[in-house]
């Protein structure tokens, strides 16, 4: 304990420094520039590390053992690990392709101009926040507050932009909120906000006359003359699962199950441009009402059996 006095002095100075930073960032947002620089510098590194750790875990573990076996065995193992690697890769690629197609479908329907990107990192050391890094930034035209979507619907909004990476605030973060419209003819508007990991979103209606019912879908409202919003309109958000009984509050609240699984996002897109208006409810997933089934009957005619087979007799 010979240095205990000096140690306590260092502790005091460091805690004061940390507290000053907190105050500075809280009052003025002075550290936004530092976070942007952090995104510019460390975003590409995270992207690189993510590429290495993506689908190749089993391949890595299998090459460690090769040397200790006989040649033949080693060759076989190498063959297996190559095949496993290819199988892992093609499974991952197939999953990505599916996400890509859903995303293009949604963006195409709405005529959004999007920048597709990959999610490279999640959250922070301490937890509490629901954020993610993506591998596109200001170089691709991304700006702060732009809407982020996936093929399923709303993912979040951009909060920090670096040169070639950005940070998005996911819609289930408790500090996230977005103006919404409940599907249907009458204009029921409100706000949806996040409630943390694996918890439903919270919907609060603006008017006290509307009545919600489970099963209704919720979409983003977008900007309107009365509600300026950075969000683009009509992006699907989720389905109402539970309407809370009016308990003293003036307006109705409900739980919303999001269309997007925020723990499994991989390919997302930032909407960099959107048309002024999008047709109401046009982006919602197909409703579960049974569609008329089309039956195609093919009658095989015996005479056509010779077309496919050309037999040569020796």
């Amino acid at each position: 304990m010979r240095n205990s006095r000096r140690g306590r002095l260092v502790l005091t100075i460091l805690l004061l420094a940390a507290f000053s930073l907190i105050t500075l960032d809280y009052r003025t947002g002075a550290l936004n520039g530092v976070r942007s620089a952090g995104s510019t510098i460390f975003g590409p590194i995270e992207n690189g590390v993510g590429h290495v750790t993506h689908p190749i875990g089993s391949w890595f573990s299998s090459i460690g053992h090769l040397g200790s076996y006989k040649n033949e065995n080693a060759a076989l193992k190498r063959r297996i690990s190559t095949l496993e690697y290819q199988a892992n890769l093609s499974a991952a690629e197939a999953a990505e392709l599916k996400q890509d197609r859903a995303l293009l479908h949604l963006a195409g329907l709405a005529q959004f101009t999007v920048v597709a990107s990959r999610v490279t990192a999640y959250g922070s050391s301490m937890g509490f926040e629901e954020t993610a890094s993506i591998n596109r930034g200001s170089a691709s035209g991304i700006k702060k507050n732009m809407t982020v979507i996936s093929g399923d619907g709303l993912v979040g909004r951009v909060i920090t932009v670096g040169h070639s990476s950005s940070t998005i605030l996911l819609a289930n973060d408790p500090t996230f909120s977005v103006g919404i419209r409940v599907e249907g003819k009458q204009l029921e508007i409100g706000t949806v906000s996040g409630s943390g990991t694996n918890r439903p979103l919270t919907l609060e209606l603006d008017s006290n006359t509307a009545l919600l019912s489970p099963g209704q879908s919720v979409v983003s409202l977008g900007s309107s003359p009365s509600v300026p919003s950075p969000f683009v309109p009509e992006v699907p958000i989720g389905t109402i699962t539970h309407v809370n009984p009016l308990a003293g509050g003036l307006t109705e609240t409900a739980e919303v199950k999001p269309f997007v699984d925020y723990t499994a996002i991989d390919i997302v897109a930032v909407v960099v441009a959107a048309p002024k208006s999008v047709k109401h409810d046009s982006l919602l997933p197909a409703s579960p009402t049974p569609a008329p089934t089309v039956t195609v009957t093919v009658t095989a005619t015996p005479s056509s059996s010779s077309t496919g087979s050309t037999t040569t007799t020796p």
Binding site: R35, E46, G123, S124, T160, S165, T167, I168, D173, T175
Partner: peptide, 17 residues
């Protein structure tokens, strides 16, 4: 940890802790 992406909280909190 307060500035590495995707940090989205007031900087200095993790440093203090």
């Amino acid at each position: 940890a307060d500035v590495i992406p995707p940090a989205g909280h007031i900087a200095g909190r993790t440093a203090f802790a």
